[in-house]
Amino acid sequence: MSVTVRFKFMRTGPVRYLGHLDMLRYFQKAVMKAELDAKYTEGFHPHQIMSFAYPLGVGMETYGDYMDLEMNACEDAEALMGRLNAVMHEGIKVTGAVILREKALNAMAAVAEADYELVVTGDGKVSGDSEKKNAETVLTAAINELMARSEITGVKSGKNIRPGIRILECRRCKDYKGSNDEGADDYELRLVMRLSSGSKLNVRPADVFDKLCGTEAVNESGIRFKVTHLYRMEIYGNDKDGRIVALNDKTAE
């Protein structure tokens, strides 16, 4: 008998430079330290049965990633979260835990879409308020230009990624959560995206950003935009009717 517990976690700050395998190793150690009743593989080198919804790229921060862990037994998922957080280190924190129902898809297979926020600046040109306003205008035009196309070829995949761009907006943001703070001048510009993810059509935020930088609107402006922070905000799956729900939603497939 075993149950799978799905943990939601965040990672911010300098730990964002860890690779996917480093995160795996980090969590395995955390499970050890927290002495969770994890299930192990058989054999001479037993290891935990752990998987992630979506590998976190080097440099990416997250508020909504998921890790599945197989356990021998688990009554109270929330309690596990507390035990894990007690042994966590700077920048990584578990923010939720649910016991998966028996037939649920594994995290990786369940992924359908993901939200991103990219903090953008441009080579020294986007610091003052008027410059930011200008940059915002440029980016908005670029978005309109891009979204008007029916076909956008992905850099690596060669596939048409246009249908996979579900939301693409430029917002003024003051805090991490993307609230639109009109009027404040200590805001930063963020590109907010919801992109198709998973095996069918996987759109990477960096691809969309590159495409934006290649638009006429950006070219004409002469601004060289760059990304200073890349956040994944949430990962979604589908419920049985095909609606988009967060991966830790009880109704996720």
Binding site: G13, P14, V15, Y17, D22, G59, E90, G91, K226, T228
Partner: peptide, 23 residues
């Protein structure tokens, strides 16, 4: 210390092998 500043900028860290050697 999760808001610790790194000595190297994001651009540099993203352009080198195994950046977490240095953070």
């Amino acid at each position: 210390f999760s808001d610790r500043q790194t000595a190297l900028s994001h651009d540099i860290l993203m352009s080198i092998d195994k950046p977490s050697r240095y953070t």
